[in-house]
Nucleic acid binder design. Structure first.
Lengths: 253, 253
DNA sequence: GTCTATATAGGGATAGAC
DNA sequence: GTCTATCCCTATATAGAC
């Protein structure tokens, strides 16, 4: 071990608790803690979905799962899931019809798995966030950034869930709605906590403000064409949402 | 003509210019000018769609058009347009398969007609609004209310267009996007006009603020379950959106 | 103007070879 | 674990009777 390396390790590890996510809300800090793409993502998919699969060998499964889900997004998010046939998917993935059925129990299983992965990911990230002791302002900032980063990295997953929600069975539709309820509730709790602590001053309806915040966050995956056309990057947008909330909540930094 | 009637006519007609839409932004005033449901709506549909129909007799056509579109919304907005078969629609409307094809050229014609009716309606209402001479604050107020009322009265139409947009052909998808662009632009112009006139004070990105406003308005038909659960009525929501904008724009009434 | 009956294509799913 | 070949069903659309 040379001196330079020891130094750099010391410099990075000592202030880790303070400078890492969620205190540091940069996308780099977020990515260091939450890896929502590449192999860790497909392992997550495998763990959620493997009981529906005939293939038990992890190595080959991961590779084909990636193909299947990636191509599903390409096809379903452009023409719609229902109008994508499994023959389309077979052609796109270069896996035969019979082969596909070794990875999915049915077509609707595929949609179901996508929703389940998204829901579990949000729950994990939000639960972790809740476990940190943050004041209302920093908690709000971290939650906005975390959700926006998830919306960005997994935008195809989120878009699919939003648009194809009604294709899911009733139980799963219900769960997706409950999740949005919980998300709004978390936001509302932060607003209320800040109001009680005197750092926010807002006399309006906190439930509606939470709903509006959720809506702004969802735009990031629903209206990509708009942000591309405006050349808005994710840091700009996070700043915009927070400034907007600060104005409404009369927050003085 | 009796005295009572003359009186009431006088009372209502004299202050009409000042008290009617868009100066009066109540839903009643809006409805007096824009009738977006009942027979006038189906005549609007007929005028947009009649060249695609085999039936030329207006009387029977109107009745069946209403059945076809109403049932399409019920089926498509719950299970998805693509997964609704024309057999489903035939059963629901109690019109035979052959009968349906006297009213639509093809299944995708039906979706196309829905988008066209919505787009034409928005264009009409927005063009009329633009023709009035209003200061920024009143123009903003009228635009928010008008759009929200349209979103409410025709919520099934709007919901269909949002969710089924990618099922349309490329040309029509492009037109739908252009329309949202124009809508955002109108909002942005109002913000800028108010800033230049000194009634609004806002240093942020007006394009993003317009996009966020559009998003909040769209929630009214995208998240009906949420507003129902919160028991938010349309007047509350219009007030919430405006208050939110006033805070961000630092507007002093 | 509305119906029934039918043509034709394409969908999801599976059996069984390799 | 992956393929090909095939089953059976349901989809859109139309022809032609009434």
């Amino acid at each position: 071990m040379d001196t330079a390396k020891v130094e750099s390790e010391t410099v990075e590890s000592l202030p880790e608790v303070l400078d890492s996510w969620p205190h540091d809300t940069s996308i780099e800090a977020f990515r260091r803690v939450w890896v929502l793409e590449g192999e860790p993502l497909w392992e997550r998919v495998f763990s959620v979905h493997h009981q529906r699969m005939q293939i038990k060998n992890g190595k080959t499964a991961l590779k084909n799962l990636q193909k299947i889900f990636t191509c599903t997004f390409r096809l379903a998010n452009s023409q719609g899931f229902h109008s994508m046939s499994l023959r389309d998917l077979s052609r796109e993935t270069e896996i035969s019809m019979g082969g596909l059925y070794a990875y999915i129990g049915s077509k609707s299983d595929l949609a179901s798995a996508i929703e389940a992965v998204v829901r579990q990911t949000i729950d994990d990230v939000m639960a972790d966030l809740a476990s940190h002791n943050l004041d209302p302002h920093h908690r709000l900032k971290a939650m906005i950034h975390a959700d926006l980063y998830m919306n960005d990295i997994m935008h195809q997953w989120y878009y699919f869930c939003f648009i194809e929600a009604k294709g899911l069975d009733k139980e799963q539709r219900e769960e997706a709605m409950q999740m949005e309820f919980r998300f709004d509730q978390r936001l509302q709790d932060i607003f209320k906590e800040g109001i009680n602590a005197g750092v926010f001053k807002y006399a309006g309806d906190t439930a509606l403000l939470a709903a509006a915040t959720t809506a702004m966050l969802q735009q990031w995956y629903l209206k990509r064409w708009k942000f591309q056309s405006l050349q808005t990057d994710i840091a700009d947008y996070a700043g915009f949402i927070l400034d907007n909330l600060y104005a409404t909540l009369a927050y003085q930094p």
